[in-house]
């Protein structure tokens, strides 16, 4: 079963690279914001899979909750900044 989760998380890591491409070369700020937000979501899943693999799911759930909260706030603050300054 561990192999299954390991393969799953490696696949997630590969998917992160596509989002990283969008976040780096994406035309405009909005594409970059969407790419970075997607990277955050995938990192969340990877953290949980790590927790399952290492049998410390109670510890990794705390980390992933904090990560999800900070990701959400980062996106909201970025959107507010773009709305306030009008630079898109």
């Amino acid at each position: 079963m561990n192999d299954f989760f390991l393969i799953l998380s490696v696949g997630m890591c590969v998917l992160v690279l596509f989002c990283l491409y969008r976040g780096t070369f994406g035309p405009g700020v909005l594409n970059r914001a969407a790419g970075i937000s997607a990277i955050g979501t995938k990192t969340l899943i990877i953290l949980l899979l790590m927790g399952v693999i290492y049998d410390r799911i109670d510890m990794f759930i705390d980390i992933s909750i904090a990560y999800a909260l900070l990701n959400f706030i980062g996106t909201v603050v970025l959107a507010k900044y773009i709305e306030t300054t009008g630079e898109a």
Binding site: A66, I73, V76, V77
Partner: peptide, 23 residues
Amino acid sequence: HSPGGGFQGGVILAAGFVLLVVS
């Protein structure tokens, strides 16, 4: 008992107030 501590908790606490300011 678990990961975290003063610095991390303080950052999350500040993030809550930041979210309140923004919204």
